[in-house]
Nucleic acid binder design. Structure first.
Lengths: 135, 135
DNA sequence: CTGACTAGGTTTCCGATGGTGACTTGATGC
DNA sequence: GCATCAAGTCACCATCGGAAACCTAGTCAG
């Protein structure tokens, strides 16, 4: 489906594959949300913290650090009275953020179906074994 | 940027927001890879295990179970000699898998830049403090 | 001078998550 | 009788993520 440069056996699902590395990079609870926010313009630490309900300081700081390391966001320190730090999305980060938009759209439009399916699955459990043999 | 039906304060980043739930659902190392494989047709347990280098039996079984629960993949048991189980993507799952394609494309085309940035960041550390004051 | 407050973190502790490898079940070939 | 295969489960351990306390530096109120 998608070839990897480092593929020896033609398998794009090799653990060392760059695609896998990139996927692992963004496959966490917070990266997508942070990039989504920064898409709308630069933001400061505590502002991000307030916007993203439920994130801990540790995870915000940690995630921002790794995003900076990977060149997806930039960090600017202003020597104001209490020091001010501003985070902004980089051009590279912006290209990623764009690809995540369909994902958010999908989430918005299909979550109902997922929740429905989940409820049905949990409700059945004993009386209607949906996962039955076929022969 | 994207409104939530359950939003009290207009903040799409509320922790109870359906978008957040959906995002959390797919934000793990394996979901995207499994859906990507099943997009190409149904597959059996051990086949998936072999294709996805590095996944443990436990995580494959666990992830498939939660994908089935959410109606994104279906599970069919054939009462063959050693019992055979086939997993296939559902129409709903297919709509999600489609939105993930740009993500894989991004990974393939931009991973080099990310790796480069990461190397630069790690290399500097002491002698070139890129994260400096501005005024 | 002391204490409090601010922004932006870091540290510590603890429970949840994920990986490893052994074990299971039921039929089949050697 | 013994090993094998498919599709898991289980027990054990290491790491991850969250909560809350602490830190630093500067400034202000009393």
């Amino acid at each position: 489906m998608h070839q990897c440069a480092t593929d020896q056996d033609g398998n794009a699902y090799a653990s060392g594959c760059p695609t896998r590395q990139a996927l692992d990079r963004i496959a966490d609870k917070w990266t997508v949300l942070i990039l989504g926010l920064l898409e709308g313009g630069p933001m400061r630490f505590n502002r991000l913290r307030r916007e993203i309900e439920g994130i801990s300081q540790k995870m915000l700081s940690q995630t921002l650090k790794s995003l900076e390391r990977d060149g997806l966001v930039s960090r600017k320190v202003f020597a104001t009275v209490p020091v001010t730090v501003e985070y902004a999305i980089t051009p590279l980060g912006a290209t990623l953020a764009e690809t995540l938009v369909p994902l958010r759209v999908w989430a918005e439009t299909h979550i109902a179906q997922v929740l429905e399916s989940r409820a049905a699955y949990d409700g059945d459990e004993s009386d209607a074994p949906a996962r039955l043999d076929v022969a």
